[in-house]
């Protein structure tokens, strides 16, 4: 082997080849930049006593409806604000704005997830009050958002019964990262073949510590335990 450039050839240095090749050691996390922004966001939340929750699910699981009902139930007990993430439109932000809590819409354009940098900018616009609860509604997607820390206190995955009880196994990274799984639209259970016990067993296979709640945003079923969970988590934050 060439002792000079390590190019693999046994040769004399007669020909003109790239002897100025250099190996540069890097050893850097590729998502390190996102992590630095997430750490900054987390420090900001801690400093201001803000409980931040990152809500993730597939499109159409009922995240926004659940959020609207949650805000109606809790807005007189604690200050709430919302960051909405969607590829396009401010339809969700309009629904949240109708509940009269502060909301900022982030349109990710072609991106399939929110990142910590965008959240940092949204925070300067939103200026959530001290000791408030901040919901971040991520882009509807059970894959990509799981990888991007936003600085939140906890990730919550919402799964509606129309999607099927096998989703925790099909999208394990999302369920591995979440502290709480909310099974939503349980008013539809009589009409779909969704096995709640099986779903919970799958989720705990991936994540033995995941907490589980069952709700229906339209009939308000299960809303009380969810609000209790929120207030308890808020008090502990």
């Amino acid at each position: 082997m060439c002792g000079y450039c390590g190019c693999g050839h046994e040769h004399k240095h007669e020909h003109d080849h790239a002897h100025d090749s250099r190996i540069m050691q890097i050893e850097q996390d590729i998502l390190g930049e996102n992590q630095r922004f997430a750490d900054q966001n987390r420090a900001y939340f801690t400093q201001h006593g803000i409980l931040t929750l990152n809500l993730m699910s597939s499109p159409g699981s009922g995240k926004t409806t659940l959020l609207v009902e949650t805000i109606r139930a809790l807005k007189h007990r604690c200050a709430i604000s919302v960051i909405e993430g969607d590829q396009q439109t401010d339809l969700d932000a309009q629904r949240i704005a109708a509940t009269a809590v502060p909301v900022v819409q982030i349109n990710t354009g072609k991106a399939c997830h929110l990142n910590a940098h965008r959240i940092g900018h949204a925070l300067s616009d939103l200026a959530p009050s001290n000791n408030s609860v901040l919901f971040i509604e991520n882009v509807g997607n059970l894959v990509c958002p799981a990888l991007f820390d936003l600085g939140e206190k906890a990730k919550i995955v919402i799964l509606s019964v129309t999607e099927g009880d096998d989703k925790p196994l099909k999208y394990p990274h999302m369920f591995a990262e979440a502290s709480l799984m909310i099974i939503n639209k349980i008013d539809l259970l009589p009409y779909v073949s969704f096995n709640v016990a099986q779903c919970i067993e799958y989720a705990r296979r991936i994540n033995p510590h995941i907490a589980v709640l069952q709700t229906s945003a339209t009939t308000q079923q299960g809303l009380l335990p969810w609000c209790d969970w929120l207030l308890k988590t808020h008090a502990a934050a």
């Binding site: 790239a18 100025d20 250099r22 190996i23 050691q25 890097i26 850097q28 996390d29 998502l31 033995p208």
Partner: peptide, 20 residues
């Protein structure tokens, strides 16, 4: 069973590059 804590396997790193 699945009662475990992951200790390795989540790396997403660039380790080095060769330039000229």
């Amino acid at each position: 069973q699945y009662n475990y804590t992951i200790t390795l396997g989540k790396a997403l790193r660039v380790t080095k590059m060769e330039t000229e």
